[in-house]
């Protein structure tokens, strides 16, 4: 791959290249800033997902034990009763979350309304709802981790392309053109000097 861009060696082209380099630098700075923030978002979410997963693993056994306890205490009909005490069921709302221009699926739980029953059943309901909302949150975070990962990859490629290929190529082309113009100027000066000396010789 050539390190120079093929351009006509004209002043207009030099101005155009300088403008393009300025634009590329602006884009590069913004993209690098965006990349840094995206990477941080990614890391924060990974940490958060890890903690939530740990909490879920801890809570799931407790909720399961509690469910088994209720089943043993009240019999199989307890879950039918549990279902019938819900005035309004809990809902899961699915939508989008935009993290610095990265569109990711998100979900959140809207807690329903329930009638108060036995204390054990109430406590079990609270804990199970909490567990489900945590699982939903984990799903949301893991989804955003995936989308952020893809976006980080894309942005990184762009930043690298600008940093290592596009801007250096523009810089070297600008330098080449400037050298070419300087050389032209020097040649012009030398030619003028020669013409002048020839004219002086001719006069003399």
């Amino acid at each position: 791959m050539s390190s120079l861009i093929r351009v006509r060696p004209t002043k207009i082209e030099l101005i155009r290249l300088k403008r393009r380099r300025e634009l590329a630098r602006k884009v590069y700075r913004i993209l690098r800033e965006r990349l840094t923030i995206l990477v941080n978002e990614f890391m924060t979410r990974i940490r958060r997902a890890y903690h939530i997963r740990k909490e879920i693993n801890r809570d799931i056994l407790d909720v399961y034990n509690e469910a088994a306890y209720l089943l043993g205490l009240y019999g199989g009909s307890i879950y039918e009763y549990y279902d019938s005490t819900a005035v309004e069921n809990s809902k899961v709302v699915i939508g989008f979350e935009n993290i610095m221009g990265v569109k990711s699926y998100t979900a959140m739980m809207k807690k329903g309304k329930f009638i108060n029953t036995y204390p054990e059943l109430n406590e079990f309901r609270e804990r199970s709802i909490m567990l489900i909302s945590r699982i939903i949150e984990l799903g949301r975070i893991e989804q955003s981790i995936k989308t952020l990962g893809v976006e980080i990859n894309k942005t990184k490629r762009r930043v690298n392309a600008l940093e290592y290929i596009f801007i250096p190529r523009l810089t070297s082309t600008i330098k080449y053109l400037q050298m070419k113009f300087e050389e032209r100027e020097r040649e012009e000066k030398a030619r003028l000097k020669r013409v002048k000396s020839m004219l002086e010789k001719h006069r003399g």
């Binding site: 861009i5 093929r6 351009v7 006509r8 393009r20 634009l23 590329a24 602006k26 884009v27 913004i30 993209l31 965006r34 935009n98 993290i99 610095m100 221009g101 762009r158 596009f166």
Partner: peptide, 26 residues
Amino acid sequence: MGVRDAYFEDLVTRVLTRELRIVNRH
């Protein structure tokens, strides 16, 4: 400069400008 090169260069400039435009679409 060939037609292809000119097209490519123009494309790159357009992509860069677009990048500046879409970076705040959130």
